[in-house]
């Protein structure tokens, strides 16, 4: 099993390298640069700027020095935030995004699995349809509509009531400022997870070993929570790998709407400002995170399901 994971990690490295390379050349081939602005910079200053960012070196030299710096964890200077390096910006933004993302994911798994179980136990009843309707709504309403709706309700309509919540801002991570963004980020995943958990739970409840467990006289609760849930969790776990990628994308929207200083917002602003190094830094970090999470998910999977053995030649 370990050899499989080592192989996965080894395969991950060239993947990451390919991403870095494609990103690098795409961004460098762009017409228009980070120093184009409404008020043109005098040519002498532009020359100095380009020299100080090594933009006049041959492309391959820039590429290799970028790769070399990357190995030291140096993503280069930001083109737009002049006083910061990209590494510093990421160090500021990443923990914020990570906290929100993790909170949203935990919330989504807890509520989603709960709803899924409720729906599965009451298959084809009104309760089941209600859960399906909630799930469909969560999937269909994009989070930039949901975010604005939440702001409208909790920031404006419920203003001056006890339910009032800040409509945006971060305030160094005050609890009240976290609620709306985390909820907004979590809602689509609640929906997806509820759907997945419902399906797998129904399947699990029809399995023979559940009948055996019931026949042995185990209480219904134990059967559902211990026997059925373990196997019903597996599709949910599989979903967590791609979910990380979605959370990253979602954080771009949520952080922009709620004005949270996370990497999602940095990415959006970097993309709009043509801040090459910042965009590349965030992309590389996200890609690494997604690759890493996919490996972790496979590991959890093999722990949960003894059928899964990675020793045999992976097809």
């Amino acid at each position: 099993m370990w050899s499989y994971f080592i192989r996965r990690i080894v395969i991950g490295i060239p993947t990451l390298w390919a991403i870095i390379t494609v990103c690098f050349f795409l961004m460098r081939l762009t017409p228009g640069g980070p120093f184009d602005s409404e008020a043109p910079v005098p040519p002498e200053i532009l020359t100095n700027l380009r020299a100080s960012y090594h933009l006049d070196d041959p492309l391959w030299q820039q590429y290799f020095s970028y790769l070399g710096n990357l190995l030291h964890g140096d993503f280069g200077p930001s083109f737009k935030y002049r006083d910061f390096t990209v590494t510093e910006l990421i160090a500021q933004g990443f923990p914020v995004s990570l906290q929100n993302g993790a909170a949203a994911l935990v919330l989504a798994v807890v509520i989603g699995v709960f709803l899924g179980i409720v729906a599965a136990l009451a298959q084809n009843t009104r309760r089941d349809y209600a859960v399906s309707a909630i799930a469909m709504t969560g999937i269909v309403i994009p989070n930039f509509i949901m975010g604005h709706l939440l702001i409208l309700i909790f920031g404006l309509w419920l203003k001056d009531s006890i339910f009032q919540l800040p409509a945006g801002g971060w305030e160094d991570g005050a609890f009240a400022n976290r609620i709306l963004p985390v909820v907004c980020l979590a809602l689509p995943y609640v929906a997806y997870i509820a759907r997945i958990a419902r399906g797998s739970m129904i399947e699990a409840l029809h399995a023979n070993y559940i009948r055996t467990a019931r026949a042995k006289g185990l209480p219904f609760r134990t059967v559902v929570l211990r026997h059925a849930l373990t196997s019903a969790m597996m599709p949910v776990v599989t979903f967590l790998g791609p979910a990380t990628a979605f959370i990253l994308t979602g954080s771009m929207v949520v952080e922009t709407i709620f004005q949270i200083p996370g990497i999602g917002r940095y990415f959006v602003q970097g993309a709009l400002n043509r801040d090459y190094t910042l965009v590349m830094g965030v992309t590389i970090l996200s890609a690494a995170l997604v690759i890493f999470m996919n490996i972790v998910v496979d590991m959890i999977y093999s722990v949960l399901d003894p059928h899964v053995r990675y020793d045999e030649a992976a097809s």
């Binding site: 993947t15 991403i19 795409l26 990415f267 965030v282 992309t283 890609a287 997604v290 690759i291």
Partner: peptide
């Protein structure tokens, strides 16, 4: 699949 492709669309 391992690549956050939305980032690429944006780029």
């Amino acid at each position: 699949y391992a690549v956050p492709l939305t980032f690429f669309v944006i780029i």
